[in-house]
Write a protein that binds this DNA or RNA. Structure first.
Lengths: 205, 205
DNA sequence: AAAAATCTGTTGCAAAAGCAACAAAATTGA
DNA sequence: TCAATTTTGTTGCTTTTGCAACAGATTTTT
């Protein structure tokens, strides 16, 4: 998926796409009701963040290369302030859905490639969301952990998985209390289901 | 989104799309690893169903008009048998992702409309999935319920919401024990947060 | 219209999870 | 490099949830 090629070749008269750079810590975009912005992360990492009414910071999603975000994909309402913040330096493509939605009159090739590529990215996003739903649907912390490890194991084709984030963030991702999760990891180890070394988990069953 | 128009006008030499009819109870499709089928529900209702290793039936998703499904959107592995079953008579468009992915040589107009329409449907799907994730991320049954009611209330612009499915299925959707959910609904009523009449919930705060 | 199946509502009890608070280890950054 | 911050690991206690088992109401099927 070479978005730079698309960007360089697309007919500027028909599609308005911006490429912007952000430094670590910068706000890439605020989610605005009734706008439909689409952002594609070309390089770097970023988080979708919300502050709830009690002022607690929630990391709702995190993004890597080829991830797609923007309020187009998220139910936005005025109660929540949602924004995406760079956790590393980032290159991002930014445009509005209505600006690319329909084929331009010029019938330009790269516009069509853009739409097809976008479709592919959104499908990937949907698959990831379904994995997340699958995990969150589990009733116990144990099942959530095992289900998460199992998905990592399948995608990496290995019984030893490397956690892509800290245990603190894992608890957030599974949406459980961290200390309760730690307790359950300990139980899984003593009961022989897994072993653990730093951020490597080995599945033993 | 008029898929019949697309179907009637699309160049049959470039895109293979089938329209099929199903009776209530029929299996619309089994999810197969490494295939990438896409189905669009034109009319009727259907459920995505899994039987886990203990033989328990799980309703994972349910589909209405304009919903899109197929293994393209779901992480499939050989451990689970996944299939979609009609809960009412259905008309369904069925095709393979690779058959429509790239623009045909003929450059036919309706092929492009199909891809754009598909993009729109997948974006909608993604927004719904995010709502579901939002709800499932809540830690307590009470928060899940209130969060669900609040989303229904926002989309219907009314403080009185009509539950689109039975309480039994609501418990499934929220992924909680039904009796515990009933208890919590009762608590919400006695504490004055909501009132309830049949399948109508009124939000009182 | 009767029988079967599903859904709603309720409860006691056991298990699991959340909360709070703390210390030690590891990482970051000034 | 040393101080500050974040992460990991642990535990006692409380609250919430799940489970099991009912009975009654409602809906569907025959």
């Amino acid at each position: 998926m070479d978005f730079n090629e698309i960007l360089n070749n697309i007919n500027e008269n028909c599609v308005k796409i911006q490429k912007k750079n952000f430094k670590k810590g910068d706000i890439i975009t605020y989610y605005i009701e009734n706008r439909k912005q689409i952002c594609i992360l070309i390089s770097g990492k970023a988080d979708l963040i919300r502050y709830d009414k009690d002022g607690n910071k929630d990391i709702i999603e995190n993004y890597n290369v080829n991830d797609i975000f923007g309020e187009t994909f998220y139910p936005v309402n005025t109660n929540n302030e949602l924004f995406v913040q760079a956790t590393e330096n980032c290159e991002v493509l930014i445009f509005l859905y209505e600006d690319i939605k329909m084929k331009c009159k010029n019938n330009c090739k790269y516009h069509q490639i853009l739409i097809s590529s976008l479709l592919e990215l959104v499908i990937n996003k949907s698959v990831h969301q379904n994995s997340r739903i699958e995990i969150l649907s589990k009733r116990t912390i144990r099942e959530k952990l095992l289900s998460y490890f199992s998905i990592l194991s399948t995608t990496s084709s290995s019984k030893t998985v490397i956690l892509p984030f800290s245990l603190t963030n894992l608890a957030d991702y599974l949406s459980v209390d961290r200390s309760a999760m730690m307790r359950e990891i300990k139980n899984l180890i003593t009961e022989g289901f897994i072993s653990k070394n730093k951020n490597k988990i080995k599945i033993l069953y």
